[in-house]
Write a protein that binds this DNA or RNA. Structure first.
Lengths: 337, 337
DNA sequence: TGTTTCATCCAAAGCGCTTTGGATTTTTCG
DNA sequence: CGAAAAATCCAAAGCGCTTTGGATGAAACA
């Protein structure tokens, strides 16, 4: 059923029907009600493409997901879009997801711009210096960065969690518990968030007068086997740490597996603090954690992007959330030697 | 830049340019080359909406993701779309992802049909008797089910892994190793795949003359804490099992955590066999597993759906893959009492 | 040379919607 | 009651593309 047919049923012009459905004031309440209930009755929805073509808005926001060399997509993405999707669908938007190999990302954005296939974009996983930001600015697509890029100085909109502070506090907690050798299992340190996390860790150690020891610091993609093997290795070195600071629940599962395998009890023998993205399928209360919901982040990102699409000339929006420090069962006082 | 402007640059009609770009034979190779290289030079891409409107194809395929009461989206979705997306983008399609609350799913499909916003749909997580299948048939949207629905008898296209056989073989493996008390940690048993898995387990036990024992069988959403708590509970019952058959790597991580915590060694004290969807961020070789790549499934589903969109009157396509049984480090002979 | 065929290109009609500018009807008020 | 103002509705132009049904010119043939 298209507008023409639908308006003939109602004995109204296409104009009036369109206006009635889109909330314009030039139509009486009586007519509007009649139109709206008929739309439900006949299950009439305007054709998406035609509407987009006429209005120039695609009513879609894009996610470009790079599949990296290891062929994995970051699993937090699932939770993120659960949040984003909820907000967007409430506003009549949908999500256009494009999966690309790492190098194809720029082409994907150019494509979107040229085809006018999305009204805005959420940028994932910003690097310290991220070329996608100037690209999107050049292309004129409204976008919101989930995270930040340190070295980019032209202003842009972002939403981030205070990773530096979160890790500083987490480290301080461990220090207060008497830990002096604290291992850091960080994410890949070309990612902006990982750099900030490391900085927080370093600041806390410096304040306490503890020297950095690269032999108990690692930086890799946040997968379970990474946590396991790093822990096995680090714990079998001379002078092993008494605590681990881990960048995500996923490698933390590996840390725990390693400790148990080594006959060590979490909390009692070795403390663990993690940054917890609250992945819904992994245990929540197991670890002491700086917690920050990825799903809520998704929601907020969607809201901010929509706001920006609405008034494109407003200055960039930025928002920084603090992580909450949650004491779980994975920390305890350092054992005296 | 739109077609009009672009064709003026080339001193050609819009018709000729459109035909040159879309591979029609009525245009000389010389002209085609000229047009194609100019398209690259000026970064001309046809407007998506206009093209869709004119052709009647949206060049999009839809995923509807229900967020369940626990507010989680199945994490295997990430790996699945990594596969799907790769195939689709190669054919010029993109993915439209809609997140809905459980009840909103039907409305989401009706919406898609009425708005003509997608050319096809991939249906996730079929129930034993799934009302979405007749709905999509009624709406006339081409669709492919990832999985099957036992009790639906009108034919439809599906792709599935032989869950029954996989679990039968896995159970037989354990039996051959001398295990007679085998716990089953299944997924939610209103899901079709879970029913089939249970059936495989039951068949193997029956063949070996082992009676079912509901006290060592569980059925829940496949999350890590489920594996942990079920294992703790089951192992502390009288006459605990010597082996676990687990529906996914995620709860299996919990099983392992529980065993280690109880001071039991996987493989040596208690064997574990899992069904492994090869989630890229969890350990792969840790477990003996019936393995089947979710990403490859995503690829194949995309291909099948595209084929179906191409010839809509062809009979439904179906494909059943066998899982591979991989011997890992989590199984060993049953201990003699 | 005049007639047929190809090869090549084009003008214009849609696809289903929004929106401008105007027409028609109803209400208001001196 | 008649004119002006307000309320309500409509015809038609466009959004940027594809595609039908010709038109045009070059090559082929007799």
């Amino acid at each position: 059923m298209n507008l023409k047919q639908f308006s003939e049923i109602l004995n109204l012009s296409q104009t009036t029907v369109s206006r009635a459905l889109n909330g314009f004031p030039e139509v009486s309440e009586k007519t509007r009600n009649r139109v709206q209930s008929a739309a439900i009755q006949y299950n009439y929805h305007p054709n998406t493409q035609a509407k987009s073509l006429a209005t120039g808005k695609s009513m879609a926001i894009g996610h470009v997901l790079p599949v990296n060399k290891q062929e994995i997509i970051n699993p937090i993405f699932t939770d993120f879009i659960a949040g984003t999707g909820e907000i967007l669908s409430r506003s009549g938007y949908h999500m256009a997801v494009t999966v690309v190999e790492d190098e194809g990302e720029e082409a994907a954005y150019r494509d979107m711009a040229s085809k006018k296939s999305v009204d805005g974009v959420i940028l994932h996983g910003p690097r310290e210096n991220d070329s996608r930001i100037p690209l999107l600015q050049e292309l004129g697509i409204p976008f919101l960065v989930h995270g930040r890029a340190q070295t980019t100085e032209t202003p842009y909109s972002w939403f981030d969690v205070n990773n530096c502070r979160a890790f500083k506090k987490a480290t301080e907690l461990l220090i207060d518990l008497g830990h002096h050798r604290i291992a850091l299992l960080n994410g890949l340190e070309y990612m902006d968030f990982a750099v900030r996390r490391r900085r927080g860790y370093e600041q806390a150690l410096a304040q306490a007068g503890i020297e950095l020891d690269p032999s108990i610091m690692r930086s890799e993609e946040m997968m379970e086997p990474y946590g396991f093997s790093a822990t096995m290795q680090i714990m079998q070195q001379p002078n092993p740490p008494t605590a681990f600071l881990v960048s995500s629940v996923i490698p933390a599962m590996g840390v725990q597996r390693a400790l148990l395998k080594l006959g060590l009890q979490p909390a009692k023998d070795v403390s663990i603090v993690i940054h917890d993205d609250q992945l819904s399928f992994l245990p929540a209360d197991l670890f002491t954690a700086s917690r920050s919901s990825i799903k809520d982040a998704g929601k907020r990102c969607a809201q901010m992007l929509l706001e920006q699409i609405k008034n494109p000339n407003a200055p960039p929006l930025t928002e920084l959330w603090e992580a909450e420090l949650i004491i779980g069962e994975s920390t305890g006082p350092a054992k005296n030697k």
